[in-house]
Design a protein around this nucleic acid. Structure first.
Length: 468
DNA sequence: TTTTGAGTTGTTCGA
DNA sequence: GTCGAACAACTCAAA
């Protein structure tokens, strides 16, 4: 009996899995393998939350496999050594895996494919990064032309169904995944492909049609909430794209169609940043735009800690950081607001914020996270102009109009009057006493004055721009 | 090769 | 209260 290995990395699903399909086409017996890589588990950007979410996904995958006569083999160690060993143990003749874009993954896979028969298939993105090039063969660095090209490429094939049955694999030792203690008091995200599909179906049934405006409201569940699932491939990019196409076909009016388009665009942004990371791996440690590499960032550890713990004195920033710390997820609008605050108001190096997000986000993806931070810092491809500085008070009023988001995540502010919720420092003393929310005691005074900080950032960015 | 048009997400100021 | 301009030129993509 010929057997091959299906090496699972960030494709924790049976449906629409091109690596799995290739493996099934190549042999009678497919051995599903996940390798816990100590380098990734202990990296400075690792997150216990995210690993816990992934373990949930692996357990679900194992149970899906068991229903089909197979099971997941989990090993821990250096991927090359583990695969080498497994190939001998099982006499597997080939390894199939889904190609990834991060420098670490590409280096690892490059090394392995020189020694072992490894085939990589597409799947992390709908269109593989090496196919999304300008006519002259170089990569796009501006989103809009990139998205035009993305649309012009032939429609991706229909998502593949999950295989019904596997030939039973040999009995192999497998590690039990530890049940990681979840630091999150509220678990919003259950791992696994079934949950991902459920959420996708629900989103496509209703919220997608109002997405254009609702996605910006931090107090509503207007987003798809699919990012953690896309991160680990519990849902494939192609499945998401096809679902959007189907929703587009059902849309009744221009506004609904716009909602679908806007969401599809977000998927294309994900592909854009994956493609950028593939072609420009250096973005993980330095600004994409060399000109702005000379900003003099502030050390300001106190400021950084206040930001990370949600104690800046700006309610929308603090609520967002509390949401991240408690749930492992943050609404996209407040990702921008908190990032802008760290980079422009505190003038703290964007890479510290990038790392903090990676350490907490369930959906923490090196490419998307890096792209977002570089954009906010004005350092990236297609970057925000340096003078675009979010005003945390205006943003709060605009995108949390009923203050529900702030009241939910910053309980200290839950009882103060509407008029002061976005600017609690403006509360008169008697109101502070009446509501039991005394500024500087129960809730921090602002750690910086936004107007002053803004002027300061403008001066520094202008200097950075002009000095070369 | 040169030219031209365009570029995610904002804020402030002054009329 | 509303609206347009300024913020700053610069780089990229494509004709």
């Amino acid at each position: 009996m010929r057997s091959v290995i299906w090496w699972i990395r960030r494709d924790l699903r049976l449906s629409d899995n091109q690596a799995l399909t290739a493996a099934l086409g190549a042999a009678d017996v497919v051995i599903p393998v996940y390798i816990l890589d100590p380098k990734l588990l202990t990296s400075p950007t690792a997150s216990q939350n995210r690993i816990g979410f992934m373990f949930d996904g692996l357990r679900m995958l194992d149970s899906d496999l068991r229903q089909r006569g197979s099971s997941l083999v989990v090993r821990k160690g250096d991927p090359f050594e583990m695969l080498h060993h497994l190939c001998r143990e099982t006499e597997a003749v080939h390894i199939f895996a889904e190609a990834d874009v991060s420098p670490y993954a590409r280096q690892r896979d490059g090394r392995i494919s020189r020694e072992l028969p490894l085939t990589l298939t597409p799947g992390v993105t709908v269109h593989p990064p090496e196919t999304l090039l300008k006519p002259d063969g170089t990569p796009y660095t501006v989103f809009t032309p990139f998205s035009r090209k993305w649309h012009s490429l032939s429609t991706p094939g229909r998502p593949l169904p999950a295989p019904k049955k596997f030939s039973s694999p040999p009995q192999l030792a497998s590690l039990d995944l530890p049940d990681l203690p979840k630091s999150t008091s509220m678990s919003f995200f259950l791992g696994g492909e079934v949950e991902a599909q459920k959420r996708l179906d629900a989103f496509i049934d209703s919220n997608i049609y109002a997405y254009t405006d609702a996605r910006n409201r931090v107090d509503l569940d207007g987003t798809s909430g699919l990012s953690p699932y896309l991160r680990f491939g519990m849902l494939s990019a192609r499945q998401a794209t096809w679902a959007a196409r189907e929703a587009g076909a059902r849309a009744q009016d221009p506004a609904s169609r716009q909602g679908v388009e806007t969401w599809l665009n977000e998927l294309i942004w994900r592909e854009f940043y994956a493609t950028i990371l593939y072609h420009f791996p250096e973005v993980l440690h330095t600004a994409f735009r060399p000109k702005l590499r000379i900003i003099r960032w502030h050390e300001d550890n106190d400021g950084f800690i206040a930001w990370s713990e949600g104690r800046t004195g700006y309610p929308i920033v603090d609520a967002a950081m509390c949401q991240l710390n408690a749930s492992g997820w943050m609404h996209n609008r407040v990702r921008m607001i908190t990032a802008s605050f760290l980079v422009k108001d505190l003038l703290i190096d964007w890479r510290r914020g990038e790392r903090y997000f990676m350490q907490h986000l369930l959906d923490g993806d090196p490419a998307s996270n890096n792209g977002g931070w570089q954009w906010t810092a004005g350092m990236g491809t297609d970057a925000a102009p340096y003078f675009r500085i979010f005003n945390p008070v205006l943003q709060g009023k605009k995108f949390d109009p009923h203050e529900a988001f702030i009241r939910r995540w910053v309980p200290e502010l839950s009882s103060i009057p509407d008029d002061y919720i976005h600017t609690p420092w403006a509360m008169p003393d008697d109101v502070q006493y009446q509501t039991g929310c005394r500024i500087g005691k129960n809730y921090p005074a602002p750690i910086v004055d936004h107007a002053t900080a803004r002027q300061y950032a403008l001066v520094e960015y202008r200097r950075g721009k002009n000095e070369q």
